[in-house]
Nucleic acid binder design. Structure first.
Length: 106
DNA sequence: ACGGTGACGCTCA
DNA sequence: TTGAGCGCCACCG
């Protein structure tokens, strides 16, 4: 990734973790936070993704809420749903279907 | 340095 | 079950 963006270690860490999420699977903000040893920084994780300069490189659309809801998306929640469906992740009413089954653990 | 903000999570009513 | 409030951490102006 030829990036010039000066992201903090926290952001880089978050992005790196999310990049590990395989297609057809989803992870929660909480899981990512725990992966970086900051289980309470779930909000900070979301903040990092919100500003995330990489789009297709980092599958941020595969990161959903702990509740199974999509949460939000800078490019539009609708787009996020479409992307997930293309990968095999079906979404019903802004909620991930079979969330517990496709949930990915780091 | 300080205060406000946000792609969250949990508890309470 | 749904809605509102509080707490948590990191980033930005």
């Amino acid at each position: 990734m030829t990036n010039k963006a000066k992201l903090t270690k926290f952001e880089l860490l978050v992005l790196a973790i999310i990049k590990k999420i395989p297609p057809g699977r989803v992870a929660t903000y909480e899981a990512v936070a725990r992966a970086i040893s900051r289980p309470r920084a779930v909000r900070a994780v979301g903040n990092a993704l919100h500003k995330n300069p990489y789009s297709p490189q980092v599958p941020c659309h595969r990161v959903v809420r702990n509740n199974g809801q999509l949460g939000g998306f800078a490019s539009g929640a609708k787009k996020k749903i479409e992307l997930l469906k293309k990968e095999g992740v079906n979404v019903k009413n802004g909620r991930v279907d079979n969330f517990n089954e496709i949930l990915y653990s780091f």
